[in-house]
Design a protein around this nucleic acid. Structure first.
Lengths: 258, 258
DNA sequence: TAGTGGTCTAGACCACTGT
DNA sequence: CAGTGGTCTAGACCACTAC
């Protein structure tokens, strides 16, 4: 691990120069995934700077999500997250017919042990974003199902589903356990055959709460997917708001050139 | 703007408590978009802490992308970026027939003044990711077109297209100006009618280079879209690698339940 | 010129990790 | 125990902004 030296005549701040050199070392592969970076003390000696300067350089890389600090151990080049590809056919009826909800089917395909926890089922008013998409009036309540998905025990996604009460009440959708095939299978059983979905994708930094629930390190963005399900009558029957740890996902879509 | 006080018995670090209080003030609307946060000096007086502690609190919010610091002026609650929705029909043939490339058609629809700059056209080997998708052997060159898109003068997206040389050479695709309707119109003119696209979406923190080209503040993630275009023979005729400033986009996809 | 954030120094004590 | 990062203090000089 050969570090360069500071150029005091360079107008770039020393901490940026140090960050650049570390970044380059990572990009070149001098520092591979999982490797330990020089400690703060080593950087102080090597570059002859104060501790805060060395720390600031490392802080840059942390904010970029390239390295992770572990107290008492050191700072390490971040390991590439196990990536799960989500194809847009993941809600295909054949999976429901096989008795599997989308997340479980997808995880199994990827050879990952799936899990679900923090399941909460309730009833209440829908957020504005949801109300617009479900075309409900302000007064109408919805059944709200929230849960957290795990892959290999690690949280990777939170999801909140909103279903109009007239579609959910009296069915397992309003229960803790929705049964085989999940919400979509129950909707189809009650005569609402699904026709199509729309998904709206954004990316942003997580809120403090999301950081906690998804156990995200600093410098880790989230992908949000807001999915609306329509039945064959063209009625919006569910809105699902998901927040995914971005490094864990690739979303795939296929569409015609028309 | 009423700030609380520190709880020294709280095991959360003072800088976290201060960050929490500021975050809450923003969420509650006490600090609206564009408002100035208390200065470092004010935070030092109010909470009776050292400057670095006040700075660290603000640093938290910056990394979350919630506030932006402007030297000499102060720290401000970030303004919501003007969002552009990208529907998956943005490559519909009707737009090409109308003589417009996708970005321009989309921008006009959104009432935004579009721009393109930093156009570079060249020829060289394809990156691995691209070669796999174009099904080329290692030796085969591609035509490489890179450019940067602007909305209202602000850079919002960079794009690099890769086209197999046998499809591009001798056509305007290998020239600086591809002509009306862009690359896709030229491909169709030469007999490669487009059939479908696949898009692979990820989100991550930008590289230093991307931060510069897209003028991104800290705490701003990017959305990447890797699009592959197929002609009616099922041949991959183009791969386009785009990097978008995440706050500026919502991607929309529509797909059947099958 | 006063106020702001940007950067740096030189210390200090703490909690956690591994030996 | 020594080594690591986490946090804090109390200063300093600088560049930029607004008045």
């Amino acid at each position: 691990m050969a570090l360069g030296s500071l150029d005091r005549s360079d107008d770039r701040a020393p901490y940026r120069q140090i960050a650049d050199q570390l970044r380059t070392a990572i990009d070149r592969g001098d520092l591979a995934a999982g490797d330990k970076l020089p400690s703060e003390a080593e950087l102080m000696r090597h570059y002859d700077v104060a501790r805060m300067t060395a720390r600031q350089a490392i802080q840059e890389l942390r904010a970029e999500g390239r390295v992770v600090a572990e107290q008492g151990r050191g700072v390490f080049v971040r390991l590439p997250a196990p990536v799960r590809r989500l194809a847009s056919d993941r809600f295909a009826r054949r999976h429901r017919d096989a008795g599997q909800a989308a997340f479980l089917a997808e995880a199994e395909k990827a050879g990952v042990t799936p899990g679900v926890d923090e399941i909460h089922v309730g009833r209440g008013p829908a957020p504005d974003l949801v109300r617009e998409r479900l075309k409900l009036d302000e007064a109408a309540d919805v059944v709200i199902r929230s849960r957290r998905y795990l892959a290999e025990g690690q949280p990777v996604e939170t999801a909140v589903s909103y279903i109009p009460v007239d579609l959910a009440e009296g069915t397992p959708i309003a229960e803790q356990d929705t049964g085989p095939g999940g919400i979509y299978a129950r909707l189809e059983e009650s005569g609402h055959m699904l026709d199509r979905f729309t998904e709206e994708i954004t990316a942003r930094m997580p809120t403090a709460d999301e950081r906690r629930r998804l156990k995200l390190g600093p410098g880790t963005p989230v992908l949000t997917v807001l999915r609306t399900a329509y039945d064959t009558d063209g009625r919006a029957v569910e809105v699902c708001d998901t927040v995914k740890a971005a490094p864990a996902y690739v979303l795939e879509y296929d569409f015609p050139a028309r």
